[in-house]
Structures are given as structure tokens and as C-alpha cells.
Design a protein around this nucleic acid. Structure first.
Length: 604
RNA sequence: GCCCCUGUAGUUCAAUGGAUAGAACUGCGGACUUCUAAGCCGUCAAUGUUGGUUCGAUUCCAACCGGGGGCACCA
């Protein structure tokens, strides 16, 4: 394994430094980003040059002399480079051993960082009655990838989803019916029509409501605008209240129907995206425990963590350098905050985890700080384990999207659009229409997911629907395409009876050696062997984009190799090894793309 | 007003305090026609400003300028 090289180098360097009577506190062995800088590299000469009153270069030269007398296993070449770096190169044999692991080890690339740990990931959290917009697509993409990284790090992972099936948005949707020409669709129409109706109802209700609120702003209490808004507010709150206590038969029916439609629709999307949740916690379930916990701990009761203020129950965040938030409204209804507390309790009771991760957009960062603080005070055993990871917002070049104003792009429409574009690219392919549809979906999803995962997750994505989702270059489909082509070479190998083999070139003929590690200095091999470290690093940093960057470099290197080298050559003994490399490439790519939640099409 | 995040080629993104700041798209210029051209090769082009810490700063710190988000009854 490559990690053992790193520790071997550590101790070798310690000895070398000792020989020069330098007491070393930290020795950093890094993997240089640049392949021409060797397989491992250290900057110790730069670090200790000053205290030794030597130039870094001179110290590096002395160190290398010391190191060379040690004969470190697996290291072929040691050289001084740049201002005083010491670069190490692995032997062909060492690289080859690691390569062989790719073809024989089913678990290649996995680590045991979190072995035996229980980790739960909560993500996506769409709202029934509202559209599944691209923000949810993003949360799902990020959450799914983090979950897979967790699994790859050896954890027992549970995937949770927390649909917002109760709250003012539901009330606004049903209230919005009265402004619409159409009524609740019949059960016979398509699911997508039903869901579209609900989305429209929400947009209508929300628009009417917030327009009225805005109009009433800064108006006198007895103004027409103010009176109308008060009326609206009461109506919405009344519906909301009835929904919470389920006291109105008619409303209950509408609610149950709409909720079912939405949830069914979400399932279709999850299936397309490749997520399968282990468990759903509904906001409606979190209501009761949330209210109870908050009430039981409102001063002077219980721990006195919450306080009453203006008829509402708040958490005084200012005490902790956070901001104060309302947990229970003056109407006695739980705000999102109270439900979040209830949810925290429900989740932990259902599955006492070692680490709980909630993935949301970064606009909720400050909100989560408050809720997590309250959770810590209420339930220390949960508070120390629950964490919040945020992703950036998808930002249109034209400004912020909002489902209130209706300028949000629905997840479904984006998926459809990508699907169609992918289909268009395949017009000339010799495939059945059915296969084309399967592939175009996989490609469309890949384009979207890669766009989300190629950059650090906390940062906003500037999104131009016309340009952003590319099928070329730095894109998901590029990665898929490189694997598809590699697979097609493997197919040819089967037909020509060439068996992939990664037998060490050093024990084979010179001709074989010339055709293998020789290509670009063994760049492909050296890159392939780095995968396990990249996966571990991406997990520990919660950073799927390291996987994306790595796969991009790997695929690009493979494509160069593919373009410049004929892999299967009649009667050439090198064919088997080159084919072995191709096979290793497909295995690493498959695992890497899996970590991103991207499927590999059979053909494209 | 207060708090948080952020500023890298024309554009969209990378760069565990290190080497010549990497890619992709766009532009310009090529090659092959062999296992899928959603591909390959070459080329032009960037760290907001001013200081500080450090042997070394895109990275850490401060100020300023620009962008985004949040801050009581929405989620």
C-alpha cells in the first residue's frame, strides 16, 4: 500500500536529519500535485535550512546523500529539485504492486477511517405542495455524495429525508386555491399535472400574501391595505392551525391528497437521481415533540432555555453571540426551529448515531448555529454529535431564485432539459431508442451532478442554464465517455483473445517495458494508484470536489493515452499490459463516479 | 446597523503555507482517420487594493473596495 511508503519515508528522513544532528519536530511528506515532482516530496530542507545556517539547496543535497545510504524499499530515485525540495520516485515494482490491488481487491480505494461508526446524513428535505426546485437537486447531489464518501470510509450510513409536510407553505397553497380558475385536479390526470397544480397554487397564494404584506407596509392601522393584510394573515393562520390539529374534515382530505401526490412525485425524482432513503422523518411528526420540548424548557420551567417574549417563545441567542429566534409563534404554532428540535430528538432516538450530518443550503448557516446551540443545551449527548454542512446556492445570472415569486427552475424541468440535450447528441448512434433514453437520462443527471460537485460545496454556483451544463471538457459526460470508450476497448480485447494483465513490466521483456510505464513516465499508473488517498481525503474534508478534480485529471490522462497509443496491437506482447491498465482505469473510474453519484452508461 | 461567507485568465472552477498558480469553456492554430471526435495536440490569457506575519502567502492576520447570505413569529 502506498501509505506505508509515506511512513517509511518519514522514518528515513528522521534518521537522515539525525545524522546531521538536526532535531526534527515535524516532517511533512506530501503528494506533489505536479506529476513531474515525483510520487512523494518533502520540504524539510526548506524548513530547517535557516536554523542550520545553510542554504536550503545545500542542506537538501546533504540529506539526499544520507538517504541514499539507507536504501529505502520501494524507492527508486531521490532527487533535489527547485529551491530545495526532495522528491522521491517509486520503483516500477512498487507501483505495480499497488496496481495489482486495483484488479484483485473488491474493496480497492475504501478506507477504515470510520469503521464501526454510525453516521446519519439528512439531505434533500423538499416540501410537499411546493415544487422540487434545483436547490433540492443540489442538496440531494451533495448529500448523496457525502453519504457515499462516508460508506467508503467504512461507516454504517443511514440516509434520512425530512420533508416539510406541514407549515405555513401548506396553508398558503390551500389558501391560494381561491384565487385560481382551476380546482384540485381529478385523480385520473398525470402525476406531473397534479404536482404542477400544487406548485401553481403555492406560487399564487404566496404572491397574493406577500404582495398584500408589502402594500400594508408603513400604512396606518386603519388603512384599507393594512386591514386587508390582517384579514389575509388571519385566514392563512386559521388554515394552518386547522392543519396542525386536523380539526377540519374537508381540509384534511385536501391535505392528505396533495401530500400523497407530492411525495409520490419526489420518489420518481429520487429514483432518477439514484438516492434511496432509509427513513423519512416528516415535519408533521416533529411538531408534537418539538412543542413539548420547547414548552417544557421555557423559563421558569425545566432548564429555562427558552423565554417568552411578545407572546412568542424565543431562544435568546444573543447570550451566546448568536441571534434570537422565535421557536413558537404567538399563535401557538411551532416555527421551523421548534420542529428542528423535535426532529433532533426523533432522529437520535430512532438510531443513536456517532455522527449526525444535516445538509442544507448555506443561507441557513446562522439559523443552524442557533438550533444546534439550543440542542446542545437541551440534549448534550445529541448536541455534541449533530453537525451541519452547507452547500452553496444555485444562483442565476439574473439573480436569486425564489419559489415564492415563481422564478425558480424546477428540478424536473432541468432534468428533462438535460435529458433532451443528451438525446440530441446521440442521433447518429446505432442504438435502440429505449437504450438511448436510458443513457440520455444518465448523461443528463451526470451533467447536473458534476456541475454541483466539481467545486467546493460551500460556495455558490453561478448558474446559466444556457451555458453552465456542458457535455464537453470539464463535465460529467466527459468522465462517462472516457469510461465508455475504455469499456469498448476491453470488449475488443475479449474478441481478440487478449487478457488484461498487470504483470510487473520489470520481469517481462524489454519490449513490454517500453510499452508500459514508459508512456508519459508512467503517469497513468502513478495517478491510478493515488485513488485511495484521494477518497480518504475527500471524506475527511467533506469535499467531493477532490474526487471530481482527481477523476477529471485521470480521465484526461487516459484520453491522451488512448489517443496516442494503440492498445491492442496484433502479436504484440505489450497488449495484455496496456489492456490491464485500461481495465484498472475503468475500475477506478467506476468507483470514483459512484462516489459522485454518477452512473456509467453501457454505451453513449 | 450588526454577524457570517466570498473576490484567481474574457467566462466557470482548482491549487493539505511551497516548486513554472492548474483545468475547462471561449478565441486562434493544428493533427489523425486506428480500439466511439461528448475525443486528441498546440497557443493567447489571472491571484481586487494596501500593509503585516513567514525562509516562502492565492492560502494566515489587519484595513479598504466589490459580490452574496442572514438578523422575531417563513422554511
Amino acid at each position: 500500500m502506498t501509505d506505508s511508503h509515506s511512513s517509511l519515508l518519514q522514518s528515513a528522513l528522521k534518521m537522515a536529519l539525525g545524522a546531521l544532528s538536526i532535531e526534527s519536530t515535524t516532517i511533512v511528506i506530501e503528494r506533489p500535485a505536479e506529476m513531474t515532482h515525483g510520487d512523494y516530496s518533502t520540504n524539510v530542507a526548506l524548513m530547517y535550512a535557516k536554523q542550520q545556517k545553510m542554504s536550503p539547496l545545500a542542506l537538501a543535497v546533504q540529506l539526499v546523500e544520507q538517504l541514499k545510504s539507507q536504501a529505502i524499499p520501494g524507492i527508486e530515485k531521490i532527487e533535489v529539485a527547485g529551491p530545495g525540495f526532495i522528491n522521491f520516485y517509486l520503483t516500477a515494482k512498487a507501483i505495480n504492486n499497488a496496481l495489482a490491488d486495483i484488479s484483485t481487491n473488491q474493496n480497492y480505494g475504501k478506507s477504515e477511517l470510520e469503521k464501526g461508526k454510525k453516521i446519519v446524513y439528512e439531505y434533500t428535505d423538499p416540501n410537499p405542495f411546493k415544487v422540487f426546485h434545483i436547490g433540492h437537486l443540489m442538496a440531494n447531489t451533495v448529500g448523496e455524495s457525502l453519504s457515499r464518501l462516508g460508506e467508503f470510509a467504512g461507516a454504517d450510513v443511514q440516509r434520512y429525508c425530512y420533508p416539510g409536510d406541514i407549515g405555513r407553505h401548506v396553508a398558503l397553497t390551500i389558501w391560494g386555491f381561491r384565487f385560481m380558475d382551476e380546482s384540485m385536479p381529478e385523480d385520473t390526470v398525470s402525476l406531473s399535472e397534479k404536482v404542477t397544480f400544487l406548485g401553481k397554487a403555492y406560487a399564487t397564494g404566496a404572491q397574493k400574501f406577500y404582495e398584500a404584506e408589502k402594500a400594508a407596509e408603513e400604512k396606518a392601522d386603519d388603512s384599507v391595505e393594512k386591514i386587508e393584510f390582517k384579514k389575509f394573515e388571519l385566514e392563512v393562520q386559521t388554515i394552518n392551525k386547522k392543519l396542525y390539529d386536523q380539526s377540519d374534515e374537508e381540509l384534511n382530505k385536501i391535505y392528505a391528497q396533495g401530500r400523497e401526490w407530492s411525495l409520490e412525485h419526489f420518489e420518481e425524482i429520487y429514483a432518477l437521481l439514484g438516492t434511496s432513503f432509509d427513513r423519512y422523518f416528516f415535519e408533521s411528526q416533529a411538531t408534537k415533540p418539538g412543542l413539548e420540548i420547547v414548552r417544557a424548557n421555557t423559563a421558569p420551567n425545566g432548564l429555562g432555555i427558552f423565554e417568552e417574549s411578545d407572546g412568542a417563545i424565543i431562544f435568546p441567542g444573543e447570550k451566546y453571540d448568536l441571534h434570537t429566534r422565535v421557536f413558537i409563534t404567538r399563535f401557538g404554532l411551532p416555527a421551523y426551529e421548534a420542529k428542528e428540535i423535535g426532529l433532533a430528538r426523533l432522529k437520535y432516538d430512532a438510531y443513536p448515531y456517532d455522527k449526525g450530518v444535516t445538509v442544507t443550503a448555506n443561507e441557513q448557516n446562522d439559523y443552524f448555529k442557533v438550533v444546534l446551540k439550543a440542542t446542545q443545551l437541551l440534549f448534550p449527548e445529541i448536541g455534541t454529535k449533530a453537525t451541519h454542512i452547507s452547500h452553496g446556492m444555485l444562483r442565476l445570472t439574473s439573480g436569486k431564485m425564489s419559489s415564492r415569486t415563481g422564478n425558480a427552475i424546477s428540478g424536473e424541468s432541468l432534468l428533462n432539459e438535460m435529458n433532451e440535450m443528451a438525446l440530441l447528441k446521440m442521433v447518429e448512434r446505432d442504438m435502440s431508442l429505449e437504450d438511448k433514453h436510458t443513457v440520455s437520462k444518465q448523461v443528463g443527471v451526470a451533467a447536473i451532478k458534476y456541475t454541483v460537485l466539481r467545486q467546493a460545496i460551500g460556495k455558490d454556483i453561478i448558474f446559466d442554464p444556457e451555458k453552465s451544463l456542458s457535455f464537453e471538457g470539464d463535465s460529467g459526460p466527459y468522465l462517462q465517455y472516457s469510461v465508455v470508450r475504455a469499456n469498448s476497448v476491453l470488449e475488443k480485447g475479449k474478441k481478440e483473445n487478449v487478457t488484461p494483465s498487470l504483470v510487473a513490466p520489470s520481469v517481462e521483456s524489454d519490449k513490454l517495458k517500453a510499452g508500459t510505464l514508459d508512456w508519459a513516465g508512467g503517469t497513468l499508473e502513478r495517478l491510478l494508484v493515488r485513488f485511495p488517498e484521494v477518497a480518504a481525503y475527500a471524506y475527511s474534508e467533506n469535499a467531493p470536489h477532490h474526487i471530481a478534480t482527481y477523476l477529471m485529471e485521470l480521465a484526461s490522462t487516459f484520453n491522451s493515452f488512448y489517443a496516442s497509443t494503440q492498445i491492442i496491437v496484433k502479436d504484440d506482447v505489450g497488449s495484455a499490459y496496456r489492456l490491464g491498465l485500461v481495465e484498472a482505469f475503468t475500475k477506478v473510474m467506476n468507483k470514483g463516479l459512484w462516489l459522485l453519484g454518477i452512473q456509467v452508461p453501457a454505451k453513449m
